[in-house]
C-alpha cells in the first residue's frame, strides 16, 4: 500500500480544508448576527425612585411619574407611567402605591382635592382614595405597585415590571 498522496487528492483535501475554514469564519459570525436580538436581555424590570418619603404628606395622595425608554434596534420609544403614594401613618411601610392608569381604557386619572376622588377624564370614572371603583365603567380597582422599598437616603423606590 502506497502512502503517497496524489497531487489531485492533495489539492482536493487542502481546498476542502481551507474552504471549510473560510466558511466557518464567516458562517459562525453570520449565525450570531442573525440571532443577536434573541440573545439580548431586555430591561423589563427595574427599581424606580419616585420621591423622598419625607416629602409625602400623610393622608394626601402624592402624585409621581416616571418615564421608561425602550430601545429596539435604532428606535427609541418612551412611555410615561405614574401613580399616587398614599401614606397612612409615619411607618415607612404603611403606605399604598396606586397606578394612575385607569383600568377601563388606560387614561390617566387625576386626584381631585375637592371631591377626594380620582377622576378619569375619559369616561368620568371615579375611584376612591384607596383606588376602589366608585362610579363609571372601570372593571376593577386601580392597579397597585405592590413591591416597594425605602433606601438609605429616604428615597421611596418601586419595583416596576413591563406589561
Amino acid at each position: 500500500m502506497s502512502e503517497a498522496i496524489s497531487r489531485r487528492d492533495f489539492i482536493k483535501v487542502t481546498t476542502s480544508i481551507i474552504g471549510g475554514i473560510i466558511g466557518a469564519a464567516i458562517g459562525v459570525p453570520a449565525v450570531y448576527y442573525l440571532i443577536d436580538p434573541a440573545l439580548r436581555e431586555g430591561a423589563k424590570e427595574a427599581w424606580i425612585p419616585i420621591g423622598k418619603l419625607e416629602n409625602m404628606e400623610i393622608g394626601k395622595p402624592y402624585p409621581f411619574s416616571f418615564t421608561r425608554v425602550q430601545v429596539n434596534g435604532w428606535e427609541r420609544t418612551s412611555t410615561t407611567r405614574g401613580g399616587f403614594v398614599i401614606r397612612n401613618s409615619e411607618d415607612p411601610n404603611d403606605l399604598l402605591i396606586l397606578n394612575s392608569r385607569c383600568t377601563h381604557l388606560a387614561c390617566t386619572v387625576n386626584w381631585s382635592e375637592t371631591d377626594q376622588v380620582y377622576l378619569c377624564p375619559c369616561h368620568d370614572a371615579k375611584f376612591s382614595k384607596e383606588g376602589e371603583v366608585l362610579d363609571g365603567p372601570p372593571p376593577r380597582p386601580l392597579d397597585r405597585y405592590a413591591e416597594f422599598r425605602v433606601n438609605e437616603e429616604g428615597m421611596l423606590e418601586i419595583f416596576y415590571q413591563e406589561g
Partner: peptide, 23 residues
Amino acid sequence: DHAYDSIQYIMEGVAFGWLIRGI
C-alpha cells in the same frame, strides 16, 4: 428616516454586523 441609523446599528449594535457589512 431609517437607512443611516439602521446601518449605524448594524455597525455598532449587532454582533458581527461590522464583519458582515465590512465583507
